[in-house]
């Protein structure tokens, strides 16, 4: 099976059962969105995929590679790159240095240069501010920087955790357009969002996660019309 397959995964934080037999799939080339409220287990799922937390049961494979057995810092070498919740850019380092760090595990320096340039082409605002400290950027620019930094790593699977958080609607739209653009260039995207409306606009398929397991799934267009989703996540 190609793509990402999460099969029957359990995660515990001490006595808290964060994920309960969670299963979902992301085919290569897709944008798949995980929707859900605070505490549903979305961020835990992301941290699980990038190796920051370990499953107590179940398997996670990416194009046949067992991700669960790899140390977190080796995942990028398998093309799995995580843009964490809250952006987590390196605030006192310059925009350019942040992007260069994305290429830390890329051995070929000219390839890093090329990808940094591609990130600047995709997000010209970053180029204008390349010598500024990351922490002085606006929220939207920081989110772009976090995405750009991940792109320099050369992702085949991009994990995006709440990229719209705290951003004005117009900026959310821009960020979502960037994500769709990245996907069209061939990167598989798993998009975790509370902003279901924005996510469903660009996603191909989506899963609704509640208390650690999937309660609803289907093509994004169908879910956007599903009364249960409309009521719970899209508002009346």
């Amino acid at each position: 099976m190609s793509g990402l397959v999460v099969d029957g995964v359990d995660v515990h934080y001490g006595r808290v059962h964060a994920l309960r037999s969670l299963s979902f799939e992301v085919g290569e080339g897709e944008i798949v969105s995980l929707l859900g409220n605070n505490g549903a287990g979305k961020t835990t799922t992301m941290n699980l995929l990038s190796g920051l937390v370990k499953a107590t049961r179940g398997t996670i494979t990416w194009n046949g590679t067992d991700l669960g057995s790899l140390p977190a810092h080796d995942l990028v070498t398998h093309g799995v790159v995580h843009v964490p919740e809250g952006r987590r850019i390196f605030s006192t380092m310059t925009v350019h240095e942040n992007l260069m760090l994305g290429g830390y595990r890329v051995a070929d320096a000219s390839l890093v240069e090329k990808r940094v340039q591609q990130a600047y082409d995709l997000m010209p605002r970053l180029h204008e501010r390349r010598k500024q400290q990351g922490g002085t950027l606006s929220g939207g620019e920081q989110q772009m920087l976090a995405i750009g930094r991940a792109l320099v790593a050369g992702p085949r699977l991009l994990l995006l955790d709440e990229p719209s958080m705290g951003l004005a609607p117009l900026i959310v739209k821009q960020v979502m357009e960037i994500i769709a653009e990245v996907n069209q260039q061939g990167t598989t995207v798993l998009l975790v969002e509370q902003n279901a409306k924005a996510a469903l606009r660009i996603a191909h398929r989506a899963y609704v996660v509640e208390t650690g397991h999937v309660t609803l799934s289907g093509p994004a267009a169908e879910l956007a019309d599903d009364p249960r989703v409309v009521e719970a996540y899209l508002g009346a």
């Binding site: 920051l52 140390p71 977190a72 810092h73 990028v76 964490p84 987590r88 605030s91 006192t92 830390y104």
Partner: peptide, 13 residues
Amino acid sequence: LDPQASTLMGINV
């Protein structure tokens, strides 16, 4: 600045 974000960049902390 941020050990966890560094791990995500592939740095062996």
